[in-house]
Computed example of a mutant assay.
Amino acid sequence: MSKMIFVNLPARDLAASTAFYVALGGTVNAQFSGETSTSLMFSDAIGVMLLTHDHYREFTKRPIGDARRDSHAMFALTVVDREAVDATVSRGAAAGGRADPNPAQDLGFMYNRHIEDPDGYVWEIVWMNPAANA
């Protein structure tokens, strides 16, 4: 079995957060979704698990922080080309996210922008030129 990563995030409004992540390109995995959680797959190896605050508290005794106020982490998601960076950020903003909470970065071989989800988690949408690694 190949390695996978699942990012588990507490969500204040599960429906709004689900709509946001679907707009970013996630596909709902009904097998692991229900009234208190939504599982979204971005590839065979990348998943995001959204959990209501009550459900999230079942997994930790630590308080749930406010990502709108404090930076907790920044997640990066690659896309196929430069145009897909802008399109993904636009779809995310239309689905309730906030575009460009951090400045865009264009290094020629790499281009990225950021989108903040409804709970304040920041995702870097990035394209890297595969020829630049050769």
Results as ranks from 00 to 15, higher is better:
39 S>R: 10
94 A>S: 09
49 M>R: 07
127 W>Q: 01
54 D>I: 06
63 P>N: 07
18 T>F: 09
1 M>G: 15
118 P>Q: 02
131 A>S: 15
54 D>G: 13
80 V>Q: 14
128 M>V: 13
42 F>G: 02
21 Y>D: 00
72 H>K: 11
110 M>K: 10
25 G>D: 04
45 A>L: 07
97 G>C: 04
45 A>I: 12
42 F>E: 01
9 L>Q: 08
82 R>S: 06
81 D>R: 13
84 A>H: 03
123 W>H: 09
132 A>M: 13
108 G>Y: 07
56 Y>T: 07
40 L>N: 01
12 R>W: 05
120 G>I: 02
121 Y>T: 10
44 D>A: 08
8 N>F: 11
25 G>I: 04
88 T>P: 01
84 A>P: 05
54 D>N: 10
84 A>Q: 09
9 L>M: 12
100 D>Q: 06
95 A>E: 01
50 L>P: 00
60 T>P: 06
29 N>S: 13
96 G>L: 07
31 Q>G: 05
23 A>S: 06
64 I>E: 07
90 S>I: 10
34 G>M: 09
57 R>C: 09
10 P>R: 03
124 E>F: 10
134 A>Y: 11
63 P>I: 04
103 P>L: 10
122 V>P: 05
101 P>N: 03
92 G>Y: 00
25 G>M: 02
119 D>G: 05
102 N>W: 12
104 A>E: 08
27 T>A: 13
14 L>E: 01
82 R>E: 01
15 A>W: 05
108 G>V: 09
118 P>C: 05
121 Y>Q: 04
64 I>N: 10
105 Q>S: 15
60 T>A: 14
39 S>H: 12
118 P>D: 02
25 G>L: 07
55 H>L: 09
75 F>H: 14
46 I>K: 05
94 A>V: 08
56 Y>M: 15
95 A>V: 04
19 A>I: 08
114 H>K: 04
24 L>Q: 03
128 M>N: 12
122 V>W: 02
125 I>Y: 01
26 G>N: 01
41 M>G: 09
128 M>P: 04
71 S>F: 09
49 M>A: 05
68 R>S: 07
59 F>T: 09
11 A>Q: 03
126 V>I: 14
59 F>D: 07
1 M>F: 13
52 T>L: 08
94 A>M: 08
62 R>Q: 15
2 S>R: 10
53 H>V: 12
41 M>L: 14
84 A>K: 03
114 H>G: 00
15 A>K: 14
19 A>S: 11
67 A>V: 06
15 A>S: 12
64 I>C: 12
26 G>W: 01
133 N>F: 15
51 L>Y: 12
4 M>A: 15
104 A>N: 08
122 V>E: 04
104 A>W: 01
36 T>N: 11
46 I>A: 11
7 V>E: 02
100 D>A: 12
92 G>W: 00
120 G>Y: 05
25 G>R: 02
17 S>Y: 10
37 S>D: 06
48 V>N: 00
112 N>M: 13
31 Q>C: 09
20 F>Y: 01
81 D>L: 06
87 A>V: 06
2 S>D: 11
41 M>V: 10
49 M>W: 07
53 H>N: 15
7 V>L: 15
70 D>P: 05
18 T>A: 14
104 A>G: 10
